[in-house]
């Protein structure tokens, strides 16, 4: 176990699915050869099959402490980096006679294929966005799977990294990770994944996905920093919990679960007797503790409606943008970056 652990909290009530985090990560880290199909940061609509397709039922992780076999997602499950007929449409004089389309094999899946489909029946349909990165787990299945000790969990901050010099592309890690957040670079022949922007974190700068988020969704910091947002949301107020805790890897990304607007009854009247997002669905994602979290959030919201103050809601609202970053709030523009 590492001495300290950096972590993130994602407030799902604030995520608007704009994919700014996705693109921030893409532009910073996955533009090189063999990385074109990689999205280390993703945002999917839930309920949905996600990225890669059906990752939630792909196995891996641990059950009662025992390693579980896991499925290898294919590149089509992740979604290929499609090639479009840009040349033809924009420069070939055919703008009026042809449509922009994917060249070659027509895809049947992609990184955000079921966007905004969600679940439920009108007028009580529902959905929410689920941003995901590598969970930098306390008990990382990827690290334990690797026969070459090519995956390390850093002592100083718990960030999980793949050493590309030791990696030989065996991909046991991809099978083992129950969150399916590891990609295979078929050009470099190594596995690659989210690095928690460690070169930024080392300089006191929050990861790009968090800093670029216009919705103030992503909190950053050390888990044990009692002045930071992570400790307050996870430990003190217990309103942020891991995704699929039953996978047994102890993720270090935590989620504030979504509260949907109330549902309508058959007469079109507001019906508060049951939630729009079924409890059992949220329990299937976050475990039974999600019901406790929803109860805490509702009680705190009731407090503020009654004119009282709520520390936890103040933290979640993030009046001060920099307060979200647990001290990792240095402006990256003040640093002269060099490529190693």
């Amino acid at each position: 176990m590492s001495k300290r652990q950096v972590a993130m909290v994602f407030d799902l009530n604030k995520c608007l699915g704009c994919q700014t985090c996705t693109i921030a990560c893409k532009r910073l880290w996955t533009r090189e050869e063999g990385m074109d199909y990689m999205w280390w940061a993703t945002v999917n609509t839930m309920p949905g099959r996600g990225t890669p397709r059906d990752w939630e039922t792909s196995g891996g992780g641990f059950k009662d402490g025992a390693a579980q076999p896991g499925r290898m997602p294919s590149r089509k499950d992740f979604g290929e980096a499609w090639k479009f007929n840009h040349e033809e449409v924009f420069f070939g004089g055919k703008g009026q006679s042809t449509h922009l389309h994917v060249e070659g094999d027509q895809p049947d899946w992609g990184p955000n294929w079921d966007e905004d489909q969600g679940g439920g029946e009108y007028p009580n349909s529902y959905y929410f966005y689920l941003p995901r990165i590598c969970n930098h787990c306390t008990h990382p299945a990827c690290l334990e799977a690797c026969p070459r000790k090519a995956i390390v969990k850093r002592e100083e901050d718990g960030i999980v990294l793949i050493d590309e010099d030791r990696c030989r592309g065996y991909r046991f890690c991809m099978e083992a990770c129950p969150y399916k957040k590891i990609y295979f670079n078929h050009v470099k022949k190594v596995s690659q994944k989210c690095i928690f922007c460690f070169p930024r974190v080392e300089q006191g700068v929050a990861p790009a996905c968090a800093r670029m988020c216009p919705g103030r969704v992503r909190f950053v910091g050390y888990k044990d920093d009692q002045n930071g947002p992570i400790w307050k949301l996870v430990e003190k107020w217990k309103v942020a919990i891991p995704l699929h805790p039953e996978f047994g890897t102890e993720p270090n990304v935590f989620y504030v679960p979504p509260i949907a607007p109330p549902r309508y009854d058959e007469n079109g009247n507001i019906d508060e007797s049951k939630p729009r997002i079924p409890d059992e669905y949220l329990v299937s994602l976050f475990g039974p503790k999600v019901l406790d979290v929803l109860a805490i959030l509702k009680a705190e919201m009731a407090k503020t409606r009654a004119g009282e103050k709520s520390e936890v809601l103040d933290v979640l609202i993030a009046y001060q943008w920099k307060s979200m970053f647990g001290g990792f709030d240095r402006d990256p523009a003040t640093i002269e970056w060099t490529k190693g």
Partner: peptide, 10 residues
């Protein structure tokens, strides 16, 4: 003799 539990399981 496989070096990790996950490989032995798989």
């Amino acid at each position: 003799m496989q070096p990790t539990e996950i490989i032995r399981t798989a």
